[in-house]
């Protein structure tokens, strides 16, 4: 693992359903992030397409090998990049996915597991469910990539850190629900708490890459942030406006935090597994 991860979050406003314009926007922001010293730049969920796509999903979908992503692969020789996109599989399923590119190739693709289909959301109507969570090795150490609603199911970040992730990359598109008297949306307050809780409980660095802008009147509220392994904020982007947020994760802080609070060392996945089997009604082999 490298000592430090100088990163940037592009808190941007994609054009809904317009790949071409979004590619241009990504190129510009990647350049700015690079000029600012970032070695890793993260874009939010579905950054190449926008969120409330509905029947536009197949029209903006890309295979991971699509030549329209060649520039991105090439650019990842200069710095690592995380983007959100609609992935078309060989058997024509469409996934809400995010990819981690580094060293000229796609190092990891995560397909969103939990597709919210309630309230303002209708993802399962349009997307296939991902069925895998795995940490992956990057040039900066072991990481995991989660997409929005995945973070609201603690089993996924839990599995990711047990799988060795020291940095959780959470990319999101959260439409504001329930504006409150304190000036934040109720779900923004929820995110604020769970980001800190996960970073602290899992003693990992956490990068929350969120977007801004409006789609069909829904407001994406921004406030991207980077948290250290004790749950304190290293950097926070403003709410409701575009920003390029720079932060540096100190990897030794993760080691020190895990030394002081060896929560992961003391974790009992065997007990978790046994109990899950009991709850699910299966016999222990």
């Amino acid at each position: 693992m490298t000592e430090r991860i100088p990163l940037a979050i592009a808190q941007m406003h994609p054009h809904l359903g317009d790949l071409e314009r979004n590619v241009a926007l990504h190129e510009k922001l990647i350049q700015e992030a690079e000029r600012g010293g970032a070695r890793l730049v993260l874009f939010p969920e579905l950054s190449l397409t926008g969120y409330f796509l509905k029947d536009l999903v197949p029209a903006v979908a890309l295979k991971v090998s699509d030549p329209r992503l060649d520039w991105l692969r090439a650019k990842s020789r200069d710095l690592a990049i995380v983007v959100g996109f609609v992935e078309e599989s060989a058997d024509f399923r469409y996934y809400n996915a995010a990819m981690y590119l580094e060293g000229g190739k796609v190092r990891h693709v995560h397909r969103k597991v939990y597709l919210p289909t309630y309230g303002i959301f209708d993802e399962q109507r349009y997307f296939a469910q991902g069925d895998r969570i795995a940490a992956f090795d990057s040039g900066f150490g072991r990481m995991a990539l989660l997409i929005c609603e995945d973070m609201w199911h603690p089993a996924l970040p839990y599995l990711a850190v047990l799988d060795g992730a020291q940095v959780l990359l959470a990319v999101s598109n959260s439409p504001g629900r329930g504006l409150t008297a304190d000036g934040r949306f109720a779900n923004a307050i929820g995110w604020h708490h769970l980001n800190r809780t996960y970073a602290q409980l899992f003693t990992c660095a956490l990068v929350f890459a969120h977007r801004v802008g409006y789609e069909d009147g829904a407001c994406f509220w921004g406030a991207s942030e980077v948290l250290g392994p004790d749950g304190t904020a290293l950097a926070q982007a403003p709410p409701l406006e575009e920003a390029l947020l720079f932060a540096t994760i100190d990897c030794d802080a993760i080691r020190r935090e895990r030394l002081a609070n060896p929560l992961l060392r003391d974790e009992r996945p065997d007990l978790t597994l046994r109990t899950l089997r009991r709850i699910l009604g299966e016999t222990i082999p």
Partner: peptide, 19 residues
Amino acid sequence: GALPLTLDYAVTAQVLTAF
């Protein structure tokens, strides 16, 4: 967190203006 009829009107105005 959602007291019925109170809002932060500065932020409300910001959200609606940007909309």
